[in-house]
Nucleic acid binder design. Structure first.
Lengths: 319, 319
DNA sequence: CTGAAAGCGCTTACAG
DNA sequence: CTGAAAGCGCTTACAG
């Protein structure tokens, strides 16, 4: 079967410990034997058995990233950047999907405590408490949440300056003439909560009427009648749906990451893109610190969002 | 640190082999001791060390899927279906990206021989020979190529009935009145080759003029002047680009998987969607056979494409 | 039903 | 510079 140290040792007539050393370029091994062993190993196509190596070292050089699916940029982009940058540090990033299924999520988390990875990035999808997560945290397993956290005290989350970004979007809509707001930030995660907070703070300070809505059914309330309406949302979905039910007057909208769908029903479309590369860089840095220095820095690390983009503006906004 | 069999054995006052048996529900262990041990284990939060278990069993219950990126449906959809269905078989699917980089690809492949996974799905991106791949194949490592193969004799590839699908697209364009064709199937992989073959066979049989083009620069040749032009392509990119350079006459286009971009310049848009779910099912089946029965069935397994879709048709096609 | 022992493939103090 | 030995955490014949 697979070539082992033992095979090489037998052929070269040395002890397997010498082979082990030679193959790890240990200077203590005589250059000549080292050469001979290395050559023999490559001829036989020797490849170390990581399971065995890990058993000794306790390291796998694998990092997992546990994600709900691959549909959104907020998942794919950080994953892509992380994969590239961690490769340079000698780690393989392995993505695994839990398909928005809570049991599946728990299963993936429990695999982490079985020595399959040296750490993991997580994009969570539940606010319920998951005991597998708290167990990992308690054992100081390196865990970094991306985009949104799980509201667990001892955890680290790398995300965007969501509160500020939402306030900026709100401000922009006001400049475009918005007189009232519908806020769609009901995803029930820390990112949506922060966005909601940012919008509400500003609107309350300015005394602007607003409602917080679950979905496009808000379009059936009286609230939307008369006056220029603005909508804020994490994705283009809810605004798109609501606009279909809306009358003739044009809507103002502010969304995160990307607009998608038709644009006719809107007078202004503002997009706040997150700095996914920056998020990945921060996440990688924190992860390596956790692995190497056993650092325990927790809490939220906020990466500034990119400058607001105006996708559509039928008339100039007032300053 | 982590709880081990030894800890539990000490507490329960039995040998670690008994603990091991109890935890694997071995009926040979007396029910009472079994219960006691299992309870103690769960209280301590025991989790088996997979690295150690693998060292003995040689199994990891992990399957890798090595992919270039996550941008295209042809990558994401099979991955998503595979992840779900393999979970039911007790395997975790781990996606890892090589970012279209040949060294990175080789690195991922060499990791496979280090006991990190029981098998791997691969969406290749190079036609150059990769010795890491042939080495794995030689050792009967379970490897299943998805969508396109690497032209290696001993390998298994699950893909679409590309030749037939391309012929159907061609036929459809002819029905829409196409008088000449530009074929964009230059990706240099087995899928593109099969598609090119399917289109060419039909066009030659019918004596229809065509050219094979690398990219949208075909738009600068004399060939495109006069007569209704059709384009066939794996993705919407090249046709989209060419249409910009094209004059007033409308184009006919047939693409695989999905259309994207504007539609104005086209009179007819036909889309051939691949059956990604079917591909995933076949791939999973072959993988499990390779792992369990040590089967060596090789070659191409072709899953029929879905019925052709007509995304746009400015005038009815003749039959 | 249970324990003692060997072994999976590797690494690393410890002697020499 | 090299070998013998212990050990990483587990599994599994083999005795009893």
């Amino acid at each position: 079967m697979a070539v082992t140290l033992k095979n090489i040792a037998a052929i070269c007539g040395v002890d397997i410990s010498t082979v082990s050393r030679a193959l790890r370029d240990d200077p203590k091994v005589q250059p000549l034997t080292r050469k001979k062993i290395q050559q023999q190993a490559s001829e036989l196509g020797y490849v170390p058995n990581l399971a065995a190596r890990n058993l000794v070292s306790g390291k796998t050089l694998n990092l997992w990233m546990i994600i709900p699916d691959m549909e959104l940029p907020v998942v794919r982009e950080p994953a892509c950047f992380l994969s590239k940058s961690l490769k340079r540090q000698g780690y393989d990033l392995l993505l695994t999907l839990y398909h928005h299924d809570s049991d599946n999520f728990k299963h993936k988390m429990s695999r982490l405590s079985q020595n399959v990875a040296d750490g993991a990035f997580v994009i969570p999808g539940f606010d319920e408490e998951v005991k597998e997560v708290t167990a990992l945290l308690r054992n100081n397993f390196p865990l970094v949440f991306i985009d949104r956290g799980m509201n667990i005290p001892q955890s680290t989350t790398v995300t965007t300056t969501n509160t500020r970004a939402a306030a900026e979007l709100t401000e922009k809509c006001l400049e475009a003439g918005a007189e009232k707001f519908i806020l769609f930030f009901q995803e029930n995660n820390t990112a949506a909560e922060a966005r909601l907070r940012g919008a509400i703070e500003l609107l309350e300070a300015r005394n602007i009427p607003f409602i917080v809505a679950d979905n496009a059914d808000a379009g059936t309330t009286d609230f939307i009648k008369d006056g220029r309406l603005a909508m804020l949302s994490s994705s283009a979905y809810a605004p798109g749906e609501l606009s279909k039910k809306y009358g003739n007057a044009k809507l103002i909208v502010g969304v995160f990451d990307a607009w998608s769908g038709l644009t006719e029903k809107f007078s202004h479309i503002f997009v706040c893109k997150q700095d996914f590369k920056g998020i990945a860089e921060q996440a990688a840095k924190v992860m390596l610190r956790k692995i190497n220095d056993k650092s325990h820095d927790n809490g939220f690390i906020e990466v500034p969002s990119l400058p607001l983009e105006t996708l559509k503006s039928e008339y100039p906004v007032r300053k």
